[in-house]
Amino acid sequence: MTKVLVVEDIPSEMALISSFLQESGYAVITATDAKEALEKVAQYKPDVVVTDVVMPGMSGFELCRSLKKNPETEKLPIVVCTSKNQELDRLWAMKQGADAYVTKPFSREDLVRALKSVVV
């Protein structure tokens, strides 16, 4: 079963993403900020990370950079899931190391399609 780490600071968004993924057959691990996400990546070795961008402390973009800089996690696929829907935001996310980009609001199909596109 594919393990997905969901990084989201808004409880309702976390619940929605988690339920979509669980219904689609993924094992879900959660973190409410990027610092906790880095700890969970080391602890649980997820197959993919789904992260918000705007979070307290470290942003999702900073999380991407941190994961891609580390030789142990540089190949870890990252899906950015955010309300930032400008083309510039998408380009910046890819430059930071994101492998896919989903804008809120999204459907379960949008999220699962993004995951399938990055998890081999």
Results as ranks from 00 to 15, higher is better:
V28H: 02
V119Q: 02
S24K: 08
V50Q: 03
Y44W: 11
L111T: 01
I78H: 02
V4T: 15
E36P: 03
A31L: 07
A27S: 10
L63Q: 05
R108T: 12
D110Q: 10
C64R: 11
V41M: 04
V6A: 03
T30F: 00
R113I: 04
A34N: 01
T30Y: 00
M94C: 05
Y44D: 14
I78K: 01
P46C: 05
E109H: 11
Y44R: 11
Q22A: 06
K75T: 15
A42V: 10
K45T: 14
Q22V: 04
D47M: 03
V41I: 15
A34M: 04
G97N: 13
N70D: 15
V49S: 02
V112W: 08
N70Q: 13
A93R: 04
P71I: 09
K35E: 12
F61S: 05
S59E: 01
Y26N: 08
K84T: 04
S12G: 01
E62L: 07
L91R: 15
V79A: 07
E74W: 09
G25K: 07
E74R: 15
L38N: 06
V118M: 06
E109R: 13
S59W: 05
M58Y: 06
K40H: 10
K84I: 04
E13C: 12
Q96D: 10
E36C: 05
E23Q: 14
S107A: 02
V4H: 04
G97E: 12
K75N: 11
V102M: 03
A34K: 01
V28Q: 03
R108Y: 00
C81I: 12
L5W: 02
A15P: 00
